[in-house]
């Protein structure tokens, strides 16, 4: 078990290295590369000045040297310096992590609390109106564009009924958190409900459930002891994988609600053509996603006694 945990944690390193390489190459090699963009945005036309800027940002060195230097800095927790603002990327990003995490985890909590029971009961009551209604709701939840749902919620709860603030972070209070996290949570709730329903149906068709029924165990006991536990293992893996879906969507929700998180920093930096900040945001967002998956995998090892990890 301990060996498995160590191995799983060590696997994290090559993945994040590969992602950093892909992102670095993508953002620095393609036609409109980082340096040209930054200079363009500074309206620097003077060739001497361009040379000077290149030297200051280390852009005069060959690409692989730049990547290695980038990695070296990364290992020291240094994400580089913004081309436009001159600030440390690390500091810019650090200030935005907490609002994004708060938003994402609240949305996830909403989804887990609503989605899993919904999927569970509709699977148990297959074919009834409850099942139909919740599955229609789930496919709608997956299909609804979040920025539109957010606009509607904003219109009804902030403009019409004036119950909640329309946007912004406030002083970090709950009132400001409700609309963005509900907007973000709806799609994930729908996904979890669908996944749970499919998982429960799969478990219900297994031999051990048939055996349990044949033994004469009560439905309640079967559901609680056999179905629920076996389903949760399946649901947890998918939930972890689909957390990426949620993290990706924070960008839209943050932009819509003027939420001061990583997503809005990312979009702003793309518009300002500030490559180091863009790169830093992307790397941190993906790392959060990978860390959640890692946590799920480790949790999985505790919950599921069947799998051997040696």
């Amino acid at each position: 078990m301990f060996a498995y945990a160590v191995r799983r944690i060590l696997q994290f390193i090559p993945t994040i290295l590969a992602i950093s390489l892909i992102m670095f190459m993508l953002l620095n090699v393609l036609p409109g590369n980082a340096a040209m963009m930054a200079m363009d945005s500074r309206k620097a036309k003077d060739p001497e000045m361009i040379e000077q800027l290149k030297k200051r940002w280390g852009l005069d060195k060959p690409l692989y040297v730049r990547y290695l230097l980038y990695l070296k800095d990364l290992a020291h927790g240094d994400l580089g310096r913004s081309f436009i603002r001159g600030d440390e990327v690390g500091a810019l990003v650090a200030a935005r992590i907490w609002p994004t995490l708060k938003l994402a985890f609240t949305a996830m909590a909403i989804a887990v609390i609503l989605g899993i029971p919904l999927g569970f009961f509709s699977a148990l009551k297959q074919g009834t109106w409850l099942d139909t209604a919740s599955m229609v709701g789930a496919v709608s939840g997956v299909s609804v564009p979040q920025f539109w749902l957010g606009l509607l919620l904003m219109y009804f709860f902030a403009v019409q009924f004036r119950l909640l603030p329309p946007s912004g972070y406030g002083d970090g209070d709950i009132a400001h958190l409700i609309l963005p996290s509900v907007t973000l949570g709806v799609g994930y709730t729908a996904l979890l409900a669908r996944t749970t329903r499919a998982a429960v149906i799969e478990v219900l068709n297994t031999d051990y459930i048939r055996t349990a029924r044949a033994k004469g165990l009560s439905e309640l006991l079967i559901n609680r002891k056999h179905v629920l536990r076996n389903t949760l293992i399946l649901v947890m893996t998918t939930a972890g994988l689909q957390f990426g879906f949620l993290i990706g969507q924070t960008v839209i929700v943050e932009k819509l609600f003027s939420w001061p998180g990583l997503g809005s920093l990312l979009v702003d930096s793309i518009f300002m053509r500030d490559i180091p900040v863009t790169q830093g945001c992307i790397l941190v967002i993906i790392s959060v996603f990978l860390l959640v998956n890692l946590a799920v995998d480790l949790l999985y090892a505790f919950v599921d006694p069947r799998i051997e990890y040696s």
Binding site: I19, L27, G244, I247, G248, V251, L266, V267, I270, I282
Partner: peptide, 10 residues
């Protein structure tokens, strides 16, 4: 392991 929207944004 890269959220699609994030990759598209990059």
């Amino acid at each position: 392991s890269i959220p699609p929207l994030i990759f598209a944004l990059a």
